[in-house]
Design a protein around this nucleic acid. Structure first.
Lengths: 238, 238
DNA sequence: CTTGTTTTCTGACGCCGTGTCAGCAAGAAC
DNA sequence: GTTCTTGCTGACACGGCGTCAGAAAACAAG
C-alpha cells in the first residue's frame, strides 16, 4: 500500500553521515529531487497541472520510479506539508508560547510567518488545492489548520485571563483570524510573482492586533509606526 | 466547446409556460434531473467521488447524454453555484442595502443565509472543493467570494461614515468575516448530518456584531437575548 | 578490477474515467 | 399514420494512473 520502506542502514563504514549530501544514499537524493521538482513546478503552475509524468520529467527520472518514493501525488503533498509545518510552528511559537510584550511577540511571529510563506508559499497553496481531492490529505490539512485554531484559541483565552485581551468567545475569533491568514498568505505568496512581504505582514498584523489587543495598540507596533497610513496595496487584488 | 445550445422556442401554441413543469421541453426536465441528481449525491458524498457515470446512473440516463447538457462536471457545478448565488444575494441584501437598525438587519441576513445554506449546503462545499481543479470554475468561485468582499467592505465603510461602526480598514475585516462564514457554513451544512441551525447562526451573528458594532450590542440581538450564555456546541468540532 | 548482492530504475501492461461521434429512438407537428 | 426535430445511446480513442518483472546501477568484499 504505502511506498514507505524501512531501509536498513548500509552496514559499511563510510556512510556515517559526517559528510552531508554526497554521503546520503542514492534514494534519499532522488526523493529530495522529486520534492524539489514539485516545488519548482508549483511556483509557476497550479496543482491541477502537476502530473506524475510532468514531475518526473523535471526530476529527470522515469515516471514509474515515482512510486518507489510516494504512493501517489497526494502523499508527496503530505510530505511537503509536513516540512512546511515544522518551520511554521517554530515561528508561531514565539507568540503562542513566548513571554513579554504580546504585541511585540505577535509582530515577531507574523514576520516569521510571512518569511516562511514567502520562501515556500506554493506548498500552502497546493496543499489547500489538493486536499479536497484526497481523503488522507484532506485530514492532514484539516488537522494542520485545527492545530492552529486550538493553539490560538488557547493563547487568546490565556491572555484574556491575564486581562490583556477583552473577554469574548475565543474560538470563532481564532478561526476567523487563521482563515484570513491562510487566505492572504496563499494568495499573496502561493505563486510567482509574489506580493510584497511588508504590506502583507502589515495587513495581517494590524488585523490581529486590533482584534485582540485593541485599535490603539496598532500604532505601537513597529510597522504601525513606520507606515501608519499605508494602504496595503496588495490587499486590493485579493 | 460549450454544451450550451440556443434552443429555438417550440413554435406550437401549447408551450406558453403557463402550466409549469409538464409544459417544459423534455430537455429542460432532463437537465434539471441531472442537477437534482448531483445535489442528491453531494448530500452524502464528497465532490471527488462524483463521477459522470455515477451521476447519470442516479439520473437514470446514459452517461454520454450528460454532454448534451454540460461540457463537463465543472460546468455543472457552475450552474449549481449560480442558482445558489441568486438565493444568497437576496437574503444578503437585507443588511447590505436595507434601512433601519443595522443589528436587526444583520440578524435577518444571517438568519436567511443560514436557511439557504441549510437547504442547499452541499453546493457551497462542492464548489469550494471543485474550484481548484478547473480554471473556469475557480474564477467563478473567486468572483463569487469577491463580490461579497466588495459588498461587505462598502457597507462597513458606509456605516463607518455614519458613525455606526468604528473606523478601521474595512476590507481585511470584511474578508476575515466572509471567510469565517464560508468556513462555518461549509463545514456545518455541507453534508448530512448537518449542524444545528440556531447555534451556527448565533456563532456567526455574534462574531459579526461584536466585530462591527461592538461587544455590547451582542446582547441586544434576539439570539443574544435568548441564549446569552450558550456555548455554540457546533463550533467545537469545526 | 572482478564478483556477488542489494538497491534503484525502466518499459510495457491493464485499468478507469473522459469526451466524441454516428446513428438510433422518441416526441411533436401535421 | 408520416415527417421532422430533438433527445439518447453504444462504441470508440485518448490520457493518466499504478503495477510488475526484469534490466541497470550502486555498492561491498575479495
Amino acid at each position: 500500500m504505502s511506498a514507505k520502506k524501512v531501509k536498513k542502514p548500509i552496514q559499511g563504514s563510510r556512510r556515517d553521515g559526517t559528510d552531508a549530501v554526497s554521503q546520503l544514499r542514492k534514494s534519499d537524493r532522488t526523493r529530495q529531487s522529486i520534492l524539489d521538482g514539485a516545488l519548482e513546478f508549483l511556483w509557476t503552475h497550479p496543482f491541477r497541472d502537476l502530473t506524475i509524468k510532468e514531475l518526473m520529467l523535471i526530476a529527470g527520472i522515469s515516471r514509474s520510479a515515482f512510486y518507489q518514493y510516494f504512493s501517489d501525488v497526494h502523499e508527496l503533498m503530505e510530505a511537503l506539508l509536513r516540512s512546511l509545518e515544522e518551520d511554521i510552528f517554530v515561528v508561531a511559537s514565539r507568540w503562542l508560547e513566548g513571554e513579554g510584550d504580546p504585541v511585540r511577540l505577535l509582530e515577531e511571529t507574523m514576520s516569521g510567518l510571512v518569511s516562511v510563506c514567502y520562501k515556500r508559499g506554493p506548498i500552502l497553496r497546493a496543499v489547500a488545492d489538493a486536499a479536497p481531492m484526497d481523503e488522507r490529505l484532506e485530514k492532514s490539512w484539516k488537522a494542520f489548520l485545527q492545530d492552529f485554531d486550538d493553539a490560538v484559541t488557547a493563547r487568546i483565552e490565556q491572555h484574556q485571563a491575564a486581562g490583556l485581551i477583552k473577554p469574548f468567545e475565543a474560538r470563532p475569533v481564532a478561526i476567523a483570524l487563521n482563515r484570513m491568514d491562510a487566505y492572504l498568505l496563499i494568495h499573496q505568496f502561493g505563486r510567482r510573482p509574489r506580493g510584497n512581504r511588508e504590506s502583507v505582514k502589515d495587513a495581517i498584523l494590524r488585523l490581529w492586533i486590533s482584534t485582540l489587543y485593541g485599535e490603539e495598540k496598532v500604532a505601537t507596533s513597529a510597522s504601525g509606526r513606520r507606515a501608519k497610513r499605508t494602504k496595503t496595496s496588495s490587499s486590493k487584488n485579493s
